[in-house]
Amino acid sequence: MNTYSQIYVHIVFAVKGRENLILPSWEEKIYKYITGIVQNKEQKMIAINGMPDHIHFLLGIRPTCCISDMVREIKKSSNLYIQTEQLSKFKFQWQEGFGAFSYSHSHLDMAINYILRQKEHHKKKSFGDEYIEMLQKFNIDYNDKYLLE
């Protein structure tokens, strides 16, 4: 008997200090690079998008996937890629920590649309407000002191 699952996780994390360092000229490169990391780990990238100061992506993951290990690898490898390719003229680093939110199959379209419409969405709402709203929506306890570097 095989293992069958349907696990979807929305991951969010920011550039250290929430600086606007992800430029439109290279954001697609970093999205493709991160997608490659996910695929090499035998997981499925469903949607990826972001803003100059943060990134969102929705994954379909296997039950054996450790989310923390996956995010650690994505941050470490993409940070090295950004530095090696000299995509940012400033020192680039991801923040510590991340948000991870699970979705059922019936809510995938909503999550995908939310991720793909980030630029439109952030014309009305800051990343800080968005992140706090997500934590509250999912009933996640948080400490303001550690919330956003």
Rank of each mutant, 00 (worst) to 15 (best):
S106E: 12
T35L: 01
H107G: 10
N20C: 08
T35I: 02
N40S: 07
I67Q: 00
Y31W: 13
P63Q: 03
L108Y: 09
I115M: 08
S5R: 01
W26G: 12
E120H: 11
T35S: 15
I132M: 08
K29M: 09
Y81N: 09
N143D: 15
F90Y: 15
L108Q: 11
D144L: 11
L108S: 12
V9C: 06
K89Y: 04
P52I: 03
W26H: 15
P63M: 05
W94A: 13
M51A: 10
L135Q: 07
M110S: 15
A111P: 13
F98D: 07
F57V: 06
L59T: 10
H121G: 09
R72Y: 02
S104V: 06
A100W: 01
Q6Y: 00
K29Y: 06
G128M: 01
K119D: 11
I48K: 07
E28G: 02
L148D: 06
G97D: 04
K32W: 01
K89S: 12
N143F: 01
Y114W: 05
V71Y: 00
F127G: 11
T64Q: 07
Y33T: 11
G97F: 03
K16W: 01
I67V: 14
P63T: 06
Q83H: 10
S25K: 12
S5H: 05
M45A: 08
K76G: 00
F138N: 11
K44S: 10
I115G: 09
R18M: 05
K125F: 03
H10R: 04
C65E: 03
F92P: 13
L147G: 10
N40A: 02
Q136N: 15
M134V: 15
N40V: 00
E27Q: 14
G99R: 03
H56E: 09
E130D: 15
I46N: 05
G99I: 01
E85H: 10
D141A: 14
L135E: 04
Y114F: 12
L135T: 04
K137E: 12
G60H: 07
Y31F: 15
Y4Q: 13
C66Q: 07
K29H: 09
L108T: 12
Q93W: 02
K119L: 09
K32M: 04
C65R: 01
I22E: 05
L59P: 05
R72N: 06
K44T: 14
L147F: 13
E120N: 13
L21K: 13
H122P: 09
M45F: 00
H54M: 05
W26K: 12
C65D: 00
Q93S: 15
K76C: 00
F13S: 06
M110I: 14
Q86W: 00
E149V: 13
R117H: 10
K89W: 00
H107Q: 15
N49G: 09
Q83Y: 01
I30N: 05
N79G: 15
Y103W: 14
E73M: 04
E27H: 10
Y31G: 07
E85K: 15
I11T: 11
F138C: 11
M51E: 04
R117W: 00
G99H: 04
S104M: 06
K16Q: 11
K123G: 08
G36K: 05
F57L: 14
E149Y: 11
S126T: 15
E28N: 12
M1F: 03
P24M: 04
E130H: 09
